[in-house]
């Protein structure tokens, strides 16, 4: 006589209660085992950084490391700002006006990661290629970014990302 394996006989409250508590216990055990892979306290501590931008001269740029990746901070010249603000949104693959990309137009703060496949674009250092739009140029596949970090030419789909930041004072920003 074959027996089905589903029914073990009558289940009483105590067995149901045991199994229910076991399930709760299993979930309580699983939580730390999974959560331990989330960023640890020391990683989280470096999830925000403060940068003093007052030392950057006009026309110059610095690169800082934030969450393991480069952030470009450029002290733009008046000319660069004017050109960035004058661009028509229709000309942009990823339309964004310059004002929405900066807190203070003098300082452009963007992630130095090409939105195509993740290379670090050139244009930070004096003498480096800045591309056809005087911003940044990605040598991997030829993406050109303008003085607001927006994609103008090449395969990248979107503008260089603006990380979350605030000005703690006139000269110090907090990124992240």
């Amino acid at each position: 006589m074959s027996e089905t394996v589903e029914n073990q006989g009558r289940r009483d409250f105590i067995v149901v209660a045991t199994n229910a508590m076991l399930a709760v216990g299993a979930a309580a055990v699983a939580y730390p085992l999974i959560n331990q892979m989330n960023p640890a306290a020391d990683t989280l501590a470096l999830s925000t950084i403060e940068v003093d931008v007052s030392a950057i001269e006009e026309g110059q740029a610095i690169t800082v490391k934030w969450r393991g990746r480069p952030v470009f901070i450029r002290h733009r010249t008046a000319e660069e700002i004017k050109v960035a603000e004058a661009v028509k949104l229709d000309d942009l693959r990823d339309p964004q006006d310059d004002a929405s990309r900066v807190e203070n137009p003098k300082y452009l703060i963007i992630q130095g990661i090409c939105t195509h496949l993740g290379c670090v674009p050139l244009g930070q250092k004096i003498g480096e290629v800045k591309g056809d739009f005087n911003g940044w140029f990605c040598p991997c596949h030829g993406s050109h970014y303008d003085t607001s970090g927006r994609i103008r030419k090449g395969p990248a789909p979107s503008n260089l990302e603006v990380p979350p930041y605030v000005f703690l004072s006139d000269s110090v920003i907090k990124i992240g």
Binding site: V15, A17, T18, M21, G25
Partner: peptide
């Protein structure tokens, strides 16, 4: 506390079975 309760409850299940 949870394990104490689990001990009692699992003992009860065992005796029932």
């Amino acid at each position: 506390l949870f394990l104490f309760v689990m001990c009692f409850v699992s003992y009860g299940s065992m005796r029932y079975i």
